[in-house]
Simulated scan of single mutants.
Amino acid sequence: MSTNLDFHTEVVLREARDEDGRGIRDLIAGVFAEYPDLVFLDEEFPELARAATNYRNMGGRLWVLEDGREIIGSIAIVRSGEPGIDELFKFYLHKSRRGSGLADVLFGKALDFARSRGSKGIVLWTDTRFVSGHRFYEKNGFIRGREERELGDASNSREYVYRRDL
């Protein structure tokens, strides 16, 4: 995928490489910085050291969006612990690009991958504070479950579970 948006730079969707870990880290840290009570600590994200390999080893893939200067979006998908169900991870988009349709591009890539291998559904966990993300998921057919979990991290994160059939 390659598109030229109003931002005057080409945006490219590609499979991530291990060396993209720093850019993905910066993207996530930037999203966390939008919330006064979220803290990004490198030690809480060890998978970013070899991000592409990590998700491939889990039977999945990681993709990034880049605009020539930096990584502006990411999404990963792996097999979950439930048979026939995939799980989304690392679904982030730079604040300046939200509302541009790029979240749909990332999500579509993950959906295509899940469907291509016969997945029956997708699950994801999302921080309770990411309200705009919740709206995106619900708009795209996800239903919030009753389960919640605490991560025990530096941000005292609580997460909701969302599920969608394919």
Rank of each mutant, 00 (worst) to 15 (best):
S96Y: 13
R117D: 08
W63P: 01
A110G: 11
A110T: 00
G152R: 10
N54A: 10
D104M: 08
I122P: 02
R144V: 06
S100I: 10
G81M: 09
G141L: 08
R135T: 14
I143F: 08
N140R: 10
S74N: 06
I85C: 04
G152I: 01
K95L: 10
E47F: 14
A33I: 02
I72S: 02
G59D: 05
T128R: 10
V123R: 07
R97L: 12
I85V: 14
G68T: 03
G118A: 12
A110C: 09
H134N: 05
Y55Q: 15
T53H: 07
A76Y: 01
D37N: 09
Y35Q: 05
L41K: 14
F32Y: 15
F89L: 10
A103M: 05
G152P: 11
D112Y: 01
E148W: 07
T126C: 11
T128M: 03
L102A: 02
V39K: 11
V64W: 05
D26W: 02
L48P: 05
N140A: 00
A103Y: 02
S155C: 03
M58T: 11
E44V: 02
K120M: 07
R69G: 13
L27H: 07
R144A: 08
G145E: 15
D37V: 03
K139F: 03
A51E: 01
G30P: 02
D26S: 12
G99F: 09
G68I: 10
G68V: 11
E148D: 00
H94W: 09
D26V: 09
R115H: 13
L65N: 10
I72F: 00
N57F: 06
K95A: 12
E82L: 12
P46W: 02
A33F: 02
S155P: 13
S116D: 04
G73T: 07
A154V: 12
D104I: 08
V64E: 00
G59P: 10
E150W: 00
D153L: 07
F89V: 02
I85K: 11
S96H: 11
S100W: 08
G108V: 00
D37P: 04
I143E: 11
L124A: 00
E44D: 10
